[in-house]
Design a protein around this nucleic acid. Structure first.
Lengths: 345, 345
DNA sequence: TATCTTCCTGGGAGCGCTCTCATGAGAGCG
DNA sequence: CGCTCTCATGAGAGCGCTCCCAGGAAGATA
């Protein structure tokens, strides 16, 4: 009942050959206007659609890119990061006429099955990997299978592969400089996990900024795990002794927790403790005070990853490159910029 | 370099035929242990993986299901709904060995292109549709193409198709009954858009509960658009005259706005105005006070949709059915249950 | 021993497409 | 007018797999 239609059949109906129909369908040149018109009429009348699998088999191209999101996603999906990333990616795939397939796995059992599947030829043309752990075995599998892939985030040192990342280092440094500019001296850091490159980069960038601008950090450093709870605990620790004037919190979610800790301690932000956050993913009016945050261009990162992957697939790009997209400091309330500028004026 | 391997080649290496290799790969019975062992050894040694497109073409099965998320998604992705849904869906697809493809479109231009693509034979075996607008043309396209599909949410009256939905009506009714149980009389409603079935059902369910328990609603009804801002505005309106004791807000995001309006008006929740929300998607400690909310089983809905779709694809299910999954009232602070029970005791 | 059944195996056909190549018809040129 | 060159077209081959069927081997039954 459904689709008994194929190129041959359309060709017969239009009085041309399979080949000509194929040319019309694919918008190839060297087809006479008459033939083209006839074929298009038949296609419109019949509602013919080319068979994706047959095309993939013959052309060795699927038009599909895979997005791999590894474990621990259960929690990760609560923050808006992946939503934005997916939005950026899908915008870009839509633009290029590609289809996006999602490979999410929660545990290592699923991971094995998924990895095996994604490497299968004829399923996807290339893969975008997110939240890559250091030494991810999938990277090895992919390169071995000759499957094009792009990593979102910074790859480990020494690995030459395609990657797109936000400028975690530069953004964190900018946060430090901003603090210095506002006249703070004694600052603190609630860092992100140092087993992630993003966490590492935000930490080192902040330290660089601290050094450059002569801020005093001392040992006022704690490390969270991205969660709100860890942000709260981190701030509790920082408040317990030698309280800093301003704290750089390496992610918005941890900042939400930190804010709560400040409030719970009977203090106010930014008057008692100022905060500069990182991510820029939380809508401003969702927190009191509104967070000053280093915004990372999440959806642009996703979009760019697709463009690069596409270029790699098309063989336009053969030499691994790492793209770093700039962050932007969004100054709002939690850094105390307003009070400070008043005080200074 | 990459994959020159195919069934024929593996067969040659193992000293058997293409057919036998195929049987081993697909775990079919009637293969001698020796043949199986030889083939498996060769596969392990070579790292052979079947070609997905070839398999799809020959078997007329892709093993891929599509998830269609229509327009306005830009905003929708900010709330955790889609993340949860996708998680539920992907858990289920992983379980069944299926691959999930995402079709997201932002505007009607993209919609056309995507719709045309998703209906293409040989791409997906079936489709899950979300946030379906009434009279969505894609539904027509899909049925016409004979493509199996399942709708997440309640389909319009009179349409016979497969669907999975949360019990919006029952949940909203439970909210009203809960209010009555706590001793409130004069209640209000911040409804969800009435051009969505979810909005409609939550409204009618609440009204049913109001009628059944003798609550007084009067004209204290405003309609929001799911956004936080609209929740705030709605509450401002309700507070401006004839202030209700308790308000049913038809979504968590609107509740967040409503909470803000209450605070801005110098009032407190639940003491001055109690709130019962709907969704149960916001982590409890994210709001002050914690929201009492009718939790809908989002990821279960997604998982169930996949299971049904799979059954339809396998021809195990031919008669359209609508599954409704139960909601659960999660009592926390915003409904004032604690104060009330103290007062009553 | 003859016959039937069950199990295992290989080969043919074909899924619907793309790609390459051969052919023919005009157009352009000297 | 004969030649080349370009453009339009169709036919063949083949992508790697599944599905079906035929045939052989082995075991069961009489």
């Amino acid at each position: 009942m459904s689709q008994r239609l194929n190129l041959e059949e359309i060709g017969r109906m239009a009085g041309v050959s399979r080949s000509t129909v194929s040319r019309v369908v694919n918008g190839e040149p060297n087809v006479s206007p008459e033939a083209k018109a006839k074929v298009e009429a038949v296609i419109a009348a019949t509602g013919y659609r080319p068979h994706a699998a047959a095309r993939s088999l013959a052309s060795n191209r699927t038009g599909v890119v895979g997005l791999v999101i590894p474990s621990a996603v259960e929690t990760l999906f609560d923050d808006p990061y992946f939503g934005r990333l997916i939005l950026g990616i899908s915008g870009s795939t839509n633009e290029l006429g590609l289809v996006l397939s999602l490979f999410i796995f929660k545990d290592s059992a699923e991971e094995g099955a998924i990895s095996a599947r994604v490497v299968r030829p004829g399923l996807v043309d290339g893969v975008i990997m997110t939240a890559t752990r250091m030494g991810d075995p999938l990277i090895e599998d992919l390169s071995q299978a000759g499957m094009p892939f792009v990593v979102v985030g910074r790859p480990d040192e020494g690995h030459r592969l395609f990657s797109v990342d936000a400028d975690n280092k530069g953004g964190a440094k900018a946060a430090a400089l901003h603090m210095a500019r506002l006249g703070y001296r004694r600052v603190g850091l609630i860092a992100a996990p140092s087993n992630t490159t993003a966490g590492l980069d935000r930490r080192s960038g902040f330290l660089a900024g601290v050094a450059e601008s002569g801020l005093e950090l001392g040992s006022r450093i704690v490390e969270g795990d991205w969660s709100e709870a860890s942000g709260r605990e981190g701030m509790v620790t920082l408040l317990s002794s030698d309280r800093p004037e301003a704290v750089f919190v390496a992610s918005d979610r941890m900042s939400v927790g930190a804010l709560r800790a400040i409030r719970d301690a009977g203090l106010t932000c930014p008057d008692d403790v100022a905060i500069v956050s990182f991510d820029g993913l939380i809508p401003p009016n969702q927190t009191v005070p509104q967070l000053t945050s280093v915004a990372q261009p999440v959806s642009e990162v996703g979009a760019e990853a697709v463009r690069i992957l596409h270029a790699v697939i098309e063989n336009d790009l053969t030499d691994p490159q790492s793209i770093v997209l700039p962050t932007e400091l969004q100054v709002r309330e939690s850094c105390g910029a307003e009070q400070r500028s008043e005080a200074h004026s």
